[in-house]
Write a protein that binds this DNA or RNA. Sequence first.
DNA 1: CATCTGATG
DNA 2: CATCAGATG
Lengths: 312, 312
Amino acid sequence: AARELKLPESTVRQVISSDFELHHYKESSENGKEKDTKKVRTEDFSSDAETKDGKKWNLKIVSWNVDGLRAWLEKDGMSVFEHENPDIVCLQETKCAIAKLPNDIKDINGYKSYFMSAKLDGYSGVGLISKLEPLVVTYGIKDKAHDDEGRCITAEYEKFYLVTVYVPNAGRKLVTLDKRMDWDPKFLKYLKDLDAKKPIIVCGDLNVAHNEIDLANPKANKKNAGFTKEERDSFTDLLSAGFVDSFRHLYPDATAKYTFWTYMMNCRAKNIGWRLDYFVLSERLVPQLCDSLIRDTLTGSDHCPITLLMHM
Amino acid sequence: AARELKLPESTVRQVISSDFELHHYKESSENGKEKDTKKVRTEDFSSDAETKDGKKWNLKIVSWNVDGLRAWLEKDGMSVFEHENPDIVCLQETKCAIAKLPNDIKDINGYKSYFMSAKLDGYSGVGLISKLEPLVVTYGIKDKAHDDEGRCITAEYEKFYLVTVYVPNAGRKLVTLDKRMDWDPKFLKYLKDLDAKKPIIVCGDLNVAHNEIDLANPKANKKNAGFTKEERDSFTDLLSAGFVDSFRHLYPDATAKYTFWTYMMNCRAKNIGWRLDYFVLSERLVPQLCDSLIRDTLTGSDHCPITLLMHM
DNA sequence: CATCTGATG
DNA sequence: CATCAGATG
């Protein structure tokens, strides 16, 4: 039995449409009664964002490193579907073999879902959940050294490719920096090849904070995974190849905006975090960009979700 | 800093005495106000039990397989000290290396404590916590094959030996029944040698339900760890060597009295359990036995504590 | 259905 | 300070 989502009442939109004529979902923030007292309110996820030339968003993508899909389900991570009513949700670090995926996440009413797991059980893993059925879904980056690790799903839609990724972590004491440095150029080539065909949207945990503004303690972390020169330069290479960090593009000066906080030392409450999760777009999609948001009120993982609003 | 126990107010007894002239602790069950609404009430642990010839108990020993000391502490297992005000507490399956023992359990105001851990970290392990400092404390049963597993502590007091034990589990599919069958006669010899010097009190998880009356599903468990003929016969051998199962001695017909319930299938709520935890006494201590109790209202483990009241 | 460890982040 | 697996019970 497919999971029935309790979508907000005023939702009147096509669930599986044949193209991206998905209409802007207008939340009813004046329905007369406060639903409950918890601090996350669906109306706070409403947005009227539009492109520079005034076109309202009609595609919403959410990306979330869930740090263990099953634990995240227990913590009501699925409420993001009710709050966001997203067209597509991408998940990283599912840490769950395909055979162990709970029905709650496989069968969501109105969505198609796709998962890739690592050979090593309980490690890595990504998922892509979409109202509109993609034309083609592919798994991995076509590289033997990496494709056993369940790090990438590509969904082809009519007007773009969506790539969700969980980039290799360089590890404590940078023990896997070599693997990471092997990944980065291969992944970039993979993206360039796609981009030669259709514009692309890349989302997920890129496991790098690009610049000092992107983490709370840049000085202390120059030798740590996620902020080494090597990793930062790789990210610069990505942007130099014709791609755009959508959040930073829209908010070049926004400080203290993070998507990850270690569970240790109460870092989340103190907002000692890192911006590791991104929506990266082909440059030619920038005119269609409406907003790129960090949903740091949502919990359920050591990462928070991020949301992209596009006019497609 | 030693942990300060919130002992019941009327406790007026010597904390470290030089002998066993420990006075009977009289709980004040009429102190005028209900303390709280939780179902475990300290006054329910009061007892006026006495020996057959009318001598009130003056020594209380509690034994508890805690199934992981640290988890048990989180679940407020230490409240047994407030409820029972015991002279001695024996713990089994501490699953905690000596170096990792929390201070809460090492430094209890008014008690001395002794622990033995397995070489294999997180496995087995026993502890003994005593108001009166034992004359001698020894570890293991002086057998190379077993003494790396942290299964036995012996405390010598003036008038008796106290032996606390976590007997090897025969394992799923009886994979370690051989180890168990190696242990049982060696342990019995160890006990006999002690008993030749002073009477003994043995307590702990003996990992056997002696007779059909001692578990909920005897028929279904004849081939399962804890109720094989081999294990039951070993226990019979122990009793035949001059020792007494104190609970069964006092309550020969008591049914459905268990000390262990698997966490699975809601067995505790349904009282589908096993009596695996015992106070076994040298026969010559029986005249001093006041009571042998199963404290099945206390939670914090898949076993409940058991309590022995003696006049020493 | 719990505890633990050890790997991973 | 979390997730997971796997061993153990």
